[in-house]
Amino acid sequence: MLGLSFIFAIGFVLIHLFSKRLKLLKVLPRSRFLSVAGGISVAYVFLHLLPELSIFQDELQGELENSGLQFLENHIYVIAMAGLVIFYALEHSVKTSKKKNKHADQPKAATGVFWVHIVTFALYNSVISYLLVREEYGDPLGMFLFFIAMGVHFITNDKGLRATHQEEYDRYGRWLLAAAILVGWATGAFADVHEWIISVLTAFLAGGVILNVLKEELPEERESSLVSFCVGLTSYSILLLFL
């Protein structure tokens, strides 16, 4: 399914380049679509990615013996927690930087913080695109469900990053994130890696998705919709459980 994965990777690229033109995202201060997207992403993490980690952990038994990574055989969820903490630290640094510039006409994070933020999300995008190729899908539908979950997640991330970094995101950020998608796909398509790397990347992704969804849903100023979030979560959960 390499050809299909490339088509979906191009779809991810187009989302980053053109998501700001979606009419659904022009509803202020908050589009219900983003809450639906958050629900879909969370459903995918809890019903697919996290259960998959337990499978990875069983498969890793004995694989990393006598190596510095042996602890992963029994503690793969630590990586998921680390992913969550890393993105929490990023958001905290961005908010701290913006507070220091609060007297500006349009407060925004310092240039250095912007680049750290964007580069980290570029790595995050590469992981998602890499797993688009390397995940073991039972059929094309499984890959399509992954594409939908991560595609709407990218739309949510774009909205948040654009609001945080303003014109700098459109000028530099979205292009770097789009390029990272292609880099991740190419790595997955042409590089042969050990199973434990895939398990680590999957765990990191799970933690990152959870934090990035919650940071968009919880702040009061987002005026997110609980009903829309639950609709997205429930409907996508049904798809994952019965398809």
Rank of each mutant, 00 (worst) to 15 (best):
V231A: 11
L145E: 12
S54D: 08
E63S: 13
P107D: 12
V183A: 00
S225D: 05
T111P: 13
E91L: 00
Y124S: 03
A179V: 09
G11N: 02
L243N: 13
E220C: 13
S97V: 09
L226W: 15
A43K: 06
V213K: 11
L22N: 04
Y88D: 08
G151N: 06
V227L: 15
L53P: 03
V127A: 04
Q57A: 01
E65H: 08
G188Q: 03
V200G: 01
I198A: 07
G188P: 03
F190Y: 01
N101D: 14
E63H: 14
L233H: 06
E135Y: 15
A37W: 07
K102D: 15
F12L: 04
F144R: 05
V213S: 10
F12P: 08
E195H: 07
A163L: 11
V127G: 02
G38K: 07
L145P: 12
E59F: 09
R162N: 04
L123N: 02
V209S: 06
V152N: 07
Y124G: 00
L233N: 08
V36R: 08
I7H: 15
L243V: 15
K100L: 12
S67C: 00
L69R: 09
M1T: 11
H165K: 13
H75A: 02
V94W: 09
L17G: 01
L28M: 09
L50M: 02
I118L: 11
L131F: 05
A43H: 00
K26R: 12
D192A: 02
G62F: 02
A104D: 15
V231Y: 07
G160Y: 03
E91M: 05
G188D: 00
L218V: 10
T120S: 11
T96V: 15
G3D: 15
A179Y: 04
L141G: 11
L243I: 14
L131N: 03
K26F: 12
L84V: 10
F56A: 05
I210P: 06
E65Y: 04
D192Y: 02
K215T: 14
L34N: 10
Y77W: 08
E73V: 05
F121T: 06
P29F: 01
E167F: 02
T96F: 15
F147A: 07
G112M: 10
E216N: 13
G208T: 03
A186T: 05
E65C: 08
D170K: 01
L176P: 01
